[in-house]
Write a protein that binds this DNA or RNA. Structure first.
Lengths: 231, 231
DNA sequence: CGAATACTTGATGAGACTCAAGCGCCGTGG
DNA sequence: CCACGGCGCTTGAGTCTCATCAAGTATTCG
C-alpha cells in the first residue's frame, strides 16, 4: 500500500504556497470548482486503514473514488464513526501534529494525499488555493456540527431518517440509494446498535416510507415522510 | 444592544485583507498569541440573543468575557446546544451566507464582532492573520468533533464526566468549577434531560467523585475516576 | 456445497425520559 | 421581619425506548 506519484510536478504555480505539496493541474473528473490539486494517489482495498489515530499528520487527503470512514476506537472495543467521505471530500486535516481519528476504506478507494507541515506553514498568498482549502475546512465544520446536533437529540427513527436523506443528497441518482457501508457502520455513525438500525429500517419499510430490495439498496418512496420525522 | 466602536480604525495594516473589518492592534488582555484583532465590542446581558439562526452572517465574533452558547431550536420546542464559548473563543464563522445556529449570552458578556463578507473575500495575503483565522477554525472543528463523538456513544455518566473534565480544563483554577450555565443548558449540551443531569451529578457526589456545595459549584475530588468513566 | 459474514427478528432488561412533587434560594412586597 | 411567589434544582414512581442476548435467515465467496 505505497503511494505512487500520480503526475509530474512541472507546474510550479503553487510551489511557494504549499511548501511540500506536489501540486499540478489535473484533468479533473470531480465536478469541483474547476480548480484542482493533485498529490500522490494510492488505492486502498475495502477495510484497509489509511492512517491511524496518533499517526503523524504529515498529509491530508482527498477521496478520488470510493468511500472512507473516519472513526475512533474506544477501549471497550466499540467504534464511533465521525464521518463518511465520498468522492471529492477532503479529510485528515488536523490542527495538531497528529491524527485524532483513524481513517479506513469502506469500499475500494482511490485517495490523493497532499503533504503539509501543519498550520504553521499554511496556505497564504494564493487566493484560489486558500479558498479551496478554507472551503473544505468550513464544509467539514458544518457537516460535523450537523452530525453532532443529530446525535444529541433524536430517536433512532430520526437518526435513520436524517442518515437516509444525507445519503440521498450525496447520491444524486434518482430515489435509489446504494449504500457503500454495512449496518454496523451505520450504527457506529449514528450511535445506535446494528439491531436497532435493522429494526428501524424494517419499520420504515412497513410504513411504506422506503423499499429494501436488498440490504445495501434503499429506495426512498416518501421523502416528505422522512423529512417530517426529523422535525 | 447596539455595538459601539471600540477603537479608531487608523491602523490600515490589514485594510486590504479583511475588507470590512475594523482591525486595530489592541493591548490584549487575553493570553492569545500576542497577536490580536479588535472589532466592535458590545455587551450582552445574560440570556440575550447575539444572533439568530437564519440571520445574515455579516460578522463573526470573539468572546472577551463571559460565556456564550450556540444552539439550535427544534420545532418540538427542544433545544440542542452545539458549544459553549468562553473568553478568547471565536464563534459564528459560517461557510454559507447565514448563521446556521443561534448564539445567546449565558452570562453577561463582552463580545467583539468582526465584519466579514464570507468565504469569497477571505483572508489571504497576510501570514499572521490567516494563521489566526485558520487556527480558530481548526480548533472549532476539533472541539465539535470531540463533542460529536461524546454524544454518539456513552451513558449519562460518561457524558457528565466528559463535560466536567472539559469545564475543568477551561477553569484553570484549582479543583473547583464555577459553572456559568444552568442544568438545562448542560442537559441540552449533552443530549440529556435536566433530571438525568441532576441525578447523575448527585450519584457522582454519593460516589465521592465530586462535591456539590451549591448547584453551580462543583468540586472535583477524583479526576482519575472521572477519566476512568470516559473509558 | 459449506463456511463465513451480513443481516433480520424475537425476548428480555437496563437506562433514560416523562410526569409529578417537593426543596432551597432569592427578590419582592406587605 | 416574615409571607409569598418564582425559579432552579432535586428526588421519586412509572413508562418506554433502545441495548443486550439469542436465534435464525440471507448472501457471498472459496
Amino acid at each position: 500500500m505505497s503511494f505512487s506519484r500520480a503526475a509530474a510536478t512541472g507546474d510550479s504555480r503553487f510551489g511557494n504556497v504549499l511548501a511540500s505539496f506536489a501540486p499540478v493541474r489535473r484533468d479533473t473528473q470531480t465536478g469541483d470548482t474547476g480548480f484542482d490539486l493533485s498529490g500522490v494517489v494510492a488505492h486502498f482495498p475495502a477495510g484497509r486503514q489509511i492512517y491511524a489515530e496518533g499517526d503523524d499528520a504529515r498529509s491530508f487527503y482527498k477521496v478520488i473514488g470510493g468511500t472512507v470512514r473516519t472513526c475512533r476506537f474506544l477501549n471497550d472495543g466499540r467504534r464511533q464513526i465521525a464521518a463518511f467521505h465520498g468522492a471529492g471530500d477532503v479529510f485528515g486535516i488536523e490542527s495538531g501534529p497528529d491524527h485524532r481519528l483513524t481513517a479506513e476504506a469502506v469500499t475500494d478507494c482511490s485517495i490523493a494525499a497532499y503533504r503539509w507541515r501543519g498550520l504553521d506553514t499554511t496556505i497564504v498568498g494564493d487566493d484560489r488555493l486558500g479558498h479551496w482549502f478554507l472551503s473544505h475546512l468550513m464544509a467539514a465544520l458544518s457537516r460535523t456540527r450537523e452530525h453532532a446536533l443529530l446525535l444529541g437529540r433524536g430517536s433512532a427513527a430520526q437518526k435513520i431518517a436524517a442518515f437516509l436523506l444525507e445519503q440521498d443528497a450525496m447520491n444524486d441518482a434518482g430515489s435509489m440509494i446504494d449504500l457503500p457501508m454495512t449496518r454496523q457502520d451505520i450504527a457506529d455513525y449514528l450511535g445506535l446498535t446494528i439491531e436497532t438500525v435493522s429494526r428501524t429500517l424494517s419499520q420504515l419499510e412497513r410504513d411504506r416510507v422506503i423499499d429494501l430490495p436488498c440490504a445495501r439498496r434503499i429506495g426512498l418512496k416518501d421523502r416528505q415522510a422522512l423529512r417530517g420525522l426529523i422535525a
